[in-house]
Design a binder for these strands. Structure first.
Lengths: 226, 226
DNA sequence: ACCTGAACACCGTTCAAGT
DNA sequence: ACCTGAACACCGTTCAAGT
């Protein structure tokens, strides 16, 4: 997108990237409600409408924030062909989960718009490569890669829905302990099977649950590829 | 929660359920942005703050809307023990998917708060029953039931993110055709594997993709149970 | 081209007052 | 107890004007 040298009026005071950075700071420090055009502008010492010089509307800012977070991913994991395909997919999934949970306020942003930025396409491309090694044909590998993305994003969104977005992520053990207390109230006479497994349900938010479900999905891929 | 017979002042003009109904109508007709306390009140001929006689805050209204939609589910499917467990889970998942997609504006609501209403607990209970038949022990069945919920809600949320929430759901074939056009633009030299499967990617939003991933997950459960 | 001041059409929520 | 009128502290976005 080469533009001619436009040299009229004052220099741009900020870059798009700086605006995205301020937006991400607001999200992490004060939660999704604080991610407003007016607060971004205020934090940068700009009039609210000056933001519209950089982005056409608020939705564009949100998409750029999503892209920024996706870009934090460790892109080496999937390409490390020394490791078997299963291990690579598990590791990249855990990596993404950790990075998204570090910005709990962002979880819904990932579900609210198509994830079709270059970073996202690169992730899909890497997944396709790993899944080809699983013995899946191209069409099945494509379906499998999307299923992995659905599972990862769905897990994170549900997990983040119980988090305070304005506070650093508590230790997993503490989060599980808190849920254990809440689940103690399930009435065993109405939901007997549920009441019998409240300990496991308390751990739904944990790494172990996340990995367990992902492994079952990968088992299914492996069986299909054989 | 039995309350004493309070008989002072005028009768309640509406019920909680009527308010939830109006909220759902606004959501379906004008999208999530129209789901505001003030618009609900206006549509009922009330002053905006009168709503706070029925619900403590907007979040409570949103939770009630979610509960209403979950309640639309066909509760017989999971209990029909004539059918094998796999078929029951696939059928209930497709049923839920269809009902949620009928309210595209609601998709994010399901990811934005813990789904712990009685209807949701009943769903979990039914899943646990079906998964016990898969040969999973109680702890694994609990993990599996949550994985299914993650997969279903994640699929619907990602699928709904591309829908116009103010318009009835177009036919699946039309939605896939539109995506096919969009994906034609993926640069093959940068993302060769992706470009080779754009036809499948266009169908990510479809029933076939949904079922394929779910079946792989269930394959994984079955292998674990054996 | 970039930015400001002012305005428009909204929000969710609270408070005091009326019946 | 239920409801209204008025207000508070916000939104996203647009428009005309200044440099």
């Amino acid at each position: 997108m080469a533009e001619g040298p436009r040299r009229r009026g004052p220099e741009r005071a900020f870059t798009d990237e700086q605006i995205v950075g301020v937006a991400l700071d607001l999200l992490d420090e004060h939660g999704p409600d604080a991610l407003s055009v007016r607060r971004i502008a205020a934090k940068m010492g700009l009039a609210p409408n000056a933001i519209y010089t950089y982005f056409p509307d608020k939705q564009a800012i949100l998409r750029a924030v999503v892209d920024r977070i996706v870009g934090e991913r460790d892109t080496q994991i999937l390409n490390d062909t020394d490791a078997p395909w299963r291990e690579r997919i598990v590791r990249v999934s855990l990596d993404i989960r950790t990075r998204l949970l570090a910005h709990p306020g962002s979880a819904l942003l990932f579900m609210s718009a198509p994830i079709d930025g270059p970073n996202s396409l690169a992730l899909g491309e890497g997944l396709l490569g790993a899944l080809a090694e699983a013995g899946l044909d191209a069409a099945d590998a494509a379906r499998a890669s999307y299923a992995v993305i659905v599972y990862v994003l769905g897990s994170v969104a549900l997990e983040a829905s119980e988090l305070d977005p304005t506070v650093p992520l508590p230790a997993e053990a503490d989060r599980i302990a808190e849920r254990r207390g809440a689940f103690a109230a399930v009435p065993a006479e109405w939901f007997p099977r549920t009441a019998a497994v409240t300990d496991v349900m308390a751990a739904y938010i944990g790494t172990e649950q996340f990995t367990w479900g992902l492994e079952r999905l990968l088992d299914g891929f492996a069986a299909r590829g054989r």
